[in-house]
Design a protein around this nucleic acid. Structure first.
Length: 491
RNA sequence: CGGGAUGUAGCGUAGCCCGGUUAUCGCGCCUGGUUUGGGACCAGGAGGUCGCAAGUUCGAAUCUUGCCAUCCCGACCA
């Protein structure tokens, strides 16, 4: 991505929107703040979803589905929870429409007012814990390890495609455990699952850590997170996992009998990632030519473009390409052959670059005669002629190399943009001139955290896991500190 | 909810200040042809409540008032 784009937030927004729209992932919809995910974008999401789902199942979880609507009274049972979500809820108040008595179309029937309003779920803790109450009686019912793939609605003031939309797709895991220790292990385990997925499949390096009290999920005892760095120097929370303690168990009265025949409240976790991950993917890798998708989750890993003159040569190339496609598919490679006659090769090249397809093969008569094919990689934009012999292996190897290269590049960028800072002037200067993560001492108080946020817009992204303990002085207050934490401006 | 801006064909736009034939141009779309190794060319064609409403006027895309919507910057954002 060009320097000019990163230097101005407004241009960066434009760059990002163009990528999403022209890259064919999504578009604005008729409903304010909601987006239409287009087939190409949805295919990407499906690939991500399938990988995550596989890992959830490997770690013992099962999928279920809970209602979209939550009775208003449920939401208010956990005090911190309602406090956190009340400001952004869509509310259903009526269940029927009628013809306008004045003849002006259709109006809400005032007689069809619901006795209790329904909230369109902003997250499902309350409806799920209300259900778990009926499912859990004994320690034999535990642990309960359930995940749900669903949509949620949060009526945000300001939205951005994928990063913050009024409605978004996500998964939310909700687990119940007999002991505190087991619940904490679960929350940390799922954070690891997220981190591994994001790094290995999305090629985006993340920092695992713990949120401070003020950044915590509404209703959680501890919130774990993975934080990624975008190319404009801002941080993005890519996923969270919460240790909920007994807060929801107490709010919904979920108790179980232990082996010792004692009534105890269960311990809970919840964890989620959303279509926001796609936003992270775009901002971490793309350039001025368009998207760059990592091979492991790209809807198409390879696109083949024929170059021909007239129907006859097209038929010859089609036959040859069929062989290539077969050999690629035999290795499980997702390939698209675009022999559409309506657009020319140059247009296709540009189009697939915009869409971030990792590898492009171009095949013409000239290549066929020489038993070669042109191979181009999206990440570095290198182009080469390679032998047709063993082409599938060549492509497979290149896909792996691209995946690795994308991760290495993002990792190098991330590491270059973690700055260790020991005084306030440097803190402000680094934030304004360089961006990225700042590793600095913090006195551990919410007051200092708040002051830093007010003065610089930087927040504590996380206290890294297994953080090194070292004595120091808080970068703002000068008070004693026991460790450095990571600050950044964030999405 | 505050500040700024914008609404003209599917998309991007000119025209508006200073009212006056049939609303401009590009992309895209349709038809026919020539093309095809980095976003093709020629010819013909279709497509418009000028955001909505009211007002001023012989006459409104253009002026006035009100409303609506969207975008950007803030505030807000497990």
């Amino acid at each position: 991505m060009s320097k000019e784009l990163t230097s101005r937030a407004e241009d960066y927004s434009q760059w990002y929107n163009d990528l999403v729209i022209k890259g064919g992932l999504a578009d604005y919809s008729a409903v304010r703040g909601c987006m239409v995910i287009k087939p190409y974008g949805f295919a990407l999401w499906e690939n991500m979803r399938d990988q995550l789902d596989k890992r959830f199942k490997e770690t013992g979880h099962v999928n279920a589905y809970f209602p979209l609507f939550i009775p208003k009274s449920f939401l208010s049972k956990e005090a911190a929870h309602v406090e956190g979500f009340a400001k952004e809820c869509a509310v259903v108040t009526h269940y029927r429409l009628m013809n306008d008595p004045n003849g002006k179309g259709i109006v809400v029937d005032p007689d069809a007012k619901l006795e209790e309003e329904l909230i369109v779920r902003p997250t499902s803790e309350t409806i799920i814990w209300n259900t778990y109450k009926d499912w859990i009686q004994s320690y034999r019912d535990l642990p309960l390890l359930i995940n749900q793939w669903a949509n949620v609605v949060r009526w945000e003031m300001r939205t951005r495609l994928f990063l913050r939309t009024a409605e978004f797709l996500w998964q939310e895991g909700h687990t119940a455990h007999a002991t505190k220790e087991e619940a904490i292990v679960e929350a940390e385990k799922m954070l690891d699952v997220y981190a591994e997925f994001v790094e290995e499949f999305m090629a985006v390096p993340v920092i695992k850590g713990l949120k401070t009290a003020s950044e915590r999920f509404a209703g959680a005892v501890d919130t774990y997170c993975i934080e990624a760095l975008m190319q404009d120097g801002k941080a993005l929370q890519a996923g969270t996992s919460h240790f909920l303690g007994q807060n929801f168990a107490k709010a919904f009265d979920v108790q179980f009998l232990t082996k010792e025949n004692k009534q105890e409240y269960v311990w809970a976790t919840s964890w989620g990632v959303s279509t926001r991950l796609i936003g992270a993917l775009i901002m971490a890798h793309s350039d001025d030519q368009g998207l760059i998708l990592p091979p492991k989750i790209a809807p198409f890993q390879v696109v083949i473009v024929p170059i021909y003159k007239g129907e006859e040569s097209k038929a010859v190339i089609d036959t040859k390409v069929d062989e290539i496609i077969k050999s690629l598919k035999a290795l499980g490679i997702r390939v698209k052959y675009d022999n559409n006659d309506n657009s020319r090769p140059g247009w296709k090249f540009a189009q697939y670059e915009l869409q971030g397809v990792p590898v492009r093969l171009a095949m013409g008569l000239r290549d066929m005669e020489n038993n070669v094919v042109e191979i181009a990689r999206r990440d570095t934009k290198e182009k080469n002629s390679v032998s047709m012999d063993g082409i599938a292996d060549t492509v497979a190897k290149l896909l792996e190399e691209i995946q690795q290269n994308m991760y290495n590049k993002a990792l190098a960028f991330r590491n270059e943009n973690i700055t260790t800072v020991d005084n306030w002037d440097d803190f402000v200067k680094t934030l304004d001139e360089k961006g990225g993560f700042i590793s600095a001492h913090w006195d551990g108080t919410a007051e200092t955290e708040e002051k830093i946020k007010d003065q610089t817009k930087a927040t504590i992204r996380c206290i890294p896991m297994n953080n090194k303990q070292e004595a120091g002085k808080c970068v703002l207050s000068g008070n004693a500190s026991v460790q450095r934490v990571l600050f950044a401006r964030a999405y």
